[in-house]
Design a protein around this nucleic acid. Structure first.
Length: 572
RNA sequence: GCGUCCGUAGCUCAAUAGGAUAGAGCAACGGCCUUCUAAGCCGUAGGCUACAGGUUCGAUUCCUGUCGGGCGCGCCA
């Protein structure tokens, strides 16, 4: 629909340009947008305001000229008028508005999908929680956000690959192995206080018990003070990954690729990446200065191997190797992202926790240096989640053991509620999740509001069948649809026709929260309509038309919820 | 100190790539069920968009600065 207006304006402007209203080299850039206020029509363009300077006449006057030059025989446009500082507002004809119902009928669950991303491969990397323990709420939010961004990109035609990066090579995995070994020894009667840096959670004992079950006393001869054996470390990681997989499955989230950092080391990926940087003379031995604000006493200058990230937009150069010669996490990250780039993706999307925000510039710098492409990697930060119950904050602390896991919350509130709530804020804003509210069956719980709208439509449908009228309620004909003339009916049609635009925008901007907000709007419009109008009217044609309208609405709601990974129940 | 995200109604948050008179929900107040699910609807009230400048036809949105908050800041991941 939007493209119709767009083309209309473009052709008109081109003609005016040929007629000499503006110089022949004037670029015809303008917007066609949905006005916020519906008294401003269905679409508006700012063309006259943008081009007024080139035409050397006031915006409103230019707008008049454009309107006068529009072709008169437009079936879709009922009227257009000049308003405000020079907007041209287009009002669609009723017949044009009604076509959305037929379109939705025909497209079914494909309505809202588009092809704008066709031919482009995008990788979305998300969650990537360290496999050293259970997932918490923040991981869950990142998981849902990444999952829905992936779904949105798929719906808009992108070829999407979902990837989980497993940090199975770092120091913290050794700590996990050591923690398990300590607990394992405890199982055989040794009383060992938990050493510094070890993981205190009960789950560590669980891993130890599983290890005992599998290997018996095989590791008893290994002192817990030693570097933990690789088999123990791997065992522990696999246990944790199993839990993570289970937790994600509860949220209906799966991945195409589980990428192991360890495999990157084994394949020499890090040496490969550093060598590529060295080829460009971007690596050097140097000493970093103490950051401003840091006390000099706390700072000991050390020579390190550094990457010239400051040449690519980072504040300072960053270390690739520790003083003991081993690689930093950053070095592995460079290698990983180079590996991604070498796999030929057209775009990379990372979902990170907000505490990793400081790493965006350096990774982008490395990618720019290695690929020469500037905007290859887009990192979306997800802010933290605060857990509440009935308005009271749930205190969480790893040490005190009052740590609430993602699993506990999903099991209590359900996947639908958790997903919807996580998506109800823009990712950049921190989020309060109230267990009581998320499960409440009241109208202050948005998910019930939306699902209820969907269920209501199906309720009407069931009622229809009880009355034995189902047969006549197939697809509505155009003359029947023409019976839809109520303002509330046009409101619904307008809203529904916006759905593909919402999906497209949410996908391109990677802002999933726009979808639930849209669905709330659509549900509200439906509830208003439902309350004020009888669907199962005595008049068969009107009844058929209204049924077609609300079934279309239900379909759009269902499509939207599907994009969010949330169920659309037919009965509540 | 530097970087980064944020600051919008009493509360929680939106605001379509810079658009017109900044919108919802909750809380408050007043209405609507002999009718398809009242888990709903309608109405009233609530604002110097933290503050000060700048860019332009036009700023909640972009730039600079100030204030206030979250996160981060050489070998942890």
């Amino acid at each position: 629909m939007r493209t119709i207006i767009d083309r209309l304006v473009t052709t008109t402007l081109e003609r005016l340009r040929r007629d000499g209203l503006f110089p022949a080299d004037t670029p015809l850039h303008f917007n066609v947008e949905r006005p916020r206020d519906k008294t401003h029509g269905d679409f508006a363009t700012n063309a006259a305001m943008v081009l007024a300077k080139a035409a050397r006449i006031p915006p409103r006057l230019l707008a008049e000229k454009i309107v006068a030059a529009l072709p008169a025989d437009q079936a879709d446009v009922e009227k257009c008028e000049v308003a405000g500082p020079g907007f041209i507002n287009f009002f669609l004809s009723p017949a044009s508005l009604r076509t959305i119902i037929t379109e939705i009928q025909q497209l079914g669950n494909r309505f809202g999908h588009s092809q704008i991303g066709t031919g482009q491969r995008v990788q979305v990397e998300f969650v990537s929680a360290n496999p050293t323990g259970p997932m918490h709420l923040g991981h869950g939010r990142g998981a849902v956000t990444g999952d829905v961004i992936a779904r949105l990109l798929q719906a808009t035609g992108f070829q999407v690959e979902r990837e989980y990066y497993i940090n199975d090579a770092g120091n913290q995995t050794l700590q996990l192995g050591r923690s398990v070994l300590v607990r394992y020894h405890s199982l055989f009667g040794e009383d060992i206080p938990l050493p510094d840096g070890c993981y205190p959670g009960e789950y560590v004992r669980e891993i130890a018990r599983a290890l005992q079950k599998q290997d018996g006393d095989r590791w008893l001869s290994t002192p817990w003070t030693d570097t933990p054996p690789e088999a123990v470390v791997t065992f522990a990681i696999d246990q944790c990954l199993g839990w993570i997989r289970d937790d994600l499955a509860l949220l209906n989230i799966t991945f195409d690729t589980w990428f192991s950092e360890r495999s990157l080391h084994q394949q020499g990926g890090i040496r490969h990446a550093i060598a590529k940087l060295e080829e460009q003379d971007l690596v050097y031995e140097g000493v970093l200065e103490a950051p401003k604000g840091k006390q000099p006493e706390e700072w000991e200058a050390r020579p390190q191997r550094l990457f010239r990230s400051s040449s690519f937009g980072d504040e300072v150069d960053r270390p690739l190797q520790k003083s003991d010669g081993s690689y930093t996490y950053f070095a592995a990250d460079i290698a990983y992202h180079l590996h991604k780039a070498e796999r030929g993706f057209d775009a990379l999307v990372n979902i990170w926790g907000a505490d990793h925000g400081g790493y965006i510039k350096r990774v982008q710098a490395a990618l720019m240096a290695l690929t020469g492409k500037k905007g290859l990697l887009d990192v979306r930060l997800v802010q933290m989640v605060n857990l509440f119950r009935g308005g009271q904050p749930v205190r969480m602390s790893k040490r005190s053991g009052t740590f609430v896991t993602l699993r506990e919350v999903v099991e209590e509130a359900g996947s639908d509620a958790v997903r919807f709530w996580f998506l109800l804020r823009s990712a950049g804003a921190s989020l309060d999740f109230d267990l009581e509210l998320a499960m409440a069956k009241t109208n202050d719980n948005p998910i019930f509001y939306v699902q209820y709208a969907h269920a209501r439509v199906h309720s009407v449908w069931r009622r229809l069948q009880e009355k034995g009228l189902a047969v006549e309620a197939g697809e509505a004909s155009n003359p029947q649809l023409a019976r839809l003339t109520e303002p509330a009916e046009y409101d619904l049609m307008r809203l529904m026709s916006r759905f593909p635009e919402v999906v497209e925008q949410a996908a391109l901007e990677k802002e999933p929260h726009k979808v639930p907000y849209y669905l709330l709007e659509l549900a509200a419009a439906f509830h208003t309509y439902y309350n004020g109008h009888k669907i199962l009217d005595e008049d068969a044609d009107l009844r058929t038309a209204r049924l077609a309208l609300i079934r279309a609405a239900a379909l759009v709601i269902a499509n939207g919820l599907t994009l969010l990974g949330v169920h659309a129940p037919e009965q509540m």
